[in-house]
Structure formats: structure tokens, C-alpha cells
Amino acid sequence: MKPIERVSLTLQHKEADRIPVYPLLCGVSRKLVNASYPVWSTDMDVCAEAYEKVTDMFGLDVICTLIDLSVEAADFGQKIVFPENEAAHPDFNDYMLKSTKDIYTVEPIKFPAAKRMNGHVRLCDRLVKSKGQDVPVVAFVFGPLGILSMMRGQANLFMDIIDDPDAVKHGVAAITETLLEYVDALAATGVHAIMLDTLFASQSIMSKQMWLEFEGVYVEKIADRIREKGCMVMVHNCGTGIYFDAQIQTMKPTAISFLHVPDDCSSYEDAQAKYGDKITFIGHVPPTWLLYATEEEVREECRKEIAMHKAGGGFILATGCEYPANLSFDKAQVIIDSAKEFGRY
């Protein structure tokens, strides 16, 4: 069975030949093309080659185009730092929005001039053409509140929400307008799904009510647009106590990629019972744990997760967040082998 057939059946909550698997091998793929992180992040031909190689070499069932969480903020004018061996990030000493009032200056940008976002569109275009017939391509987009935090600093933004809620809503609305154009362009490449990272929809950051008010209503518009354009909506969130219910309510995703138990569930088993028939689960091998877990422990964790979620389809084995960018591929291979060994129907 081709990955696209396997994933398609899984998303329909039908049992394929086995469960699909894709440890989120993103930044680590740069090693396969001997590229530095800055080159991998900014040269989309190199990035595409890395994604193609990692997909072929490990037989991945999904390609998810996570580059870094600064792609969108960079195009709004945030100064970005590109370290040699880790993901790009904003210059933490030089946020472009210096004060709460500055948020009122955020406006939608002219999308054709958006260098990094258009680079990501080109990456998706190439991957759809080279791999999309066999492997579903999922474009990764950071949520608007997260993007604003990259331009203002998280701590500042969280206080702004209370100090001047209208300012934050202005900024998020302006970013959302640009993201609507962005998802149009991504959908036009033929990607199968767009995955929205709504990082702050979790107890580790803010209340559910606050998230709904400050991001939920905006990502609802983006999710509607994604579906209008013929793509599936997926969600990624690696926070603790994530708000499955609020994210399902607003974005109606086909699948949620997650690491921790949702806020209204007591365990992964409970989450399976409560949400397993509503969405496809993608997860939830802890990526940082891979740094020191033995291969046998990883295999056992995968076996447990597969046993918990595999019945009736609706489960893709993956890491709960990006695979550590400087780790060897050995543990990824264990995850993939485990899916093949324990995930057969």
C-alpha cells in the first residue's frame, strides 16, 4: 500500500495495511544533504532535497514541512537569527514591536513580497510534484497569535493581552489577513493538508476562554478558508493540557498532532475514548525523551501507543513535536520499525 492510501484510510478511521508513521524528521533532515541549519532553512531547493531524501530513506508516510516558527514573522519584518545548529528564531534582543502601542502598527503585508512564506510555498510546490502522488504533503503554518508573539516577545504579548486586548486583537486580525493569502497559495500547490500550529491553546500558556477570544476566532476563519480551497485542516500543539475541544470547535480538524494529554482527559486512554472517533490522533512519542531513552525503551513506548490507539484506524504514530534536530536517526528508525512490527492490521 502506498503511504497516501495508508494515510487516506487512516484519516477515514478505516484500518489500512498498518498504521502510518512519521517521526517529525524536519531540521534533522539537513544532515542528509550536508547542509547547515541556515542553508536548510533559507534555500528551499536544499530543504526540498532534504525532505525528499529523508522521506525516501525512511519510507515516511507523511511529509510535514515544518521549517521553523519564524517563517511568517520574518516576512512581517521581525529580525531573525539563523544559528548554525538549531532552528531560526527571532532576535530576542530586538523585537520589532517594542511597546503595546506598536501592535496597532501591524498591518497585513503584500504577500508577493513575503520572502520566507513564498519560499515555503515553493518548497511545497516541489514536494507535491516530486512526492505528492505517493506521500501526502502537509504544509505547516504557525497560528496568528504565535506569529505576533515572535514579533513582540511572548512575555510582553501575554501581558499585552490583559493590558490592551484591542491592540492584540488588531495585530492578530492583521496577521490573519495575510495568513488567508498564505494558505490560498499553499493550497494552490496541491498540498493535501495544512497544519496550523496553535501553540497557545494549552493550559501551559493561557485559559481556554482567553485562547478562544485571542486566537480561536481567527484560526476559525483560516481553517474555513483551507477547507474552501480543498485541503484538509490539521492541528499541531505540543503544550500540556491542550484544548482539544476548543480546537475542534474552531478549526474542525481532520487530525491533531499532539504530545500531552488534553486538559479534559485524565490519560491518553481517556483521550482515545473521548476524541478517538472524532479526529485522527498524530503522536505522541516524546521527542526530548528520545535523547536519553534506549532503543528498547523507544520500541516499548511505540508498542504501547500503538496498542492504545490503533483499533479502527485514526492513528498515525509520530513524535509529539519535532524530532531532535541534532540526534542521530537511530531512534527514528526504531519508531518506524515499531509501526511496521506492531501496527499491522
Binding site: F158, M159, Q203, M206, S207, M210
Partner: peptide
């Protein structure tokens, strides 16, 4: 106890 979250803690600390 998840009755307040990071924004509320930050403004209290401020």
C-alpha cells in the same frame, strides 16, 4: 491548579 495561567502570573509578578 490551572485557575490562572501565564498572563495572569506575569502581571501579578510585575
Amino acid at each position: 491548579n490551572n485557575e490562572v495561567f501565564v498572563p495572569e502570573v506575569l502581571i501579578a509578578a510585575r
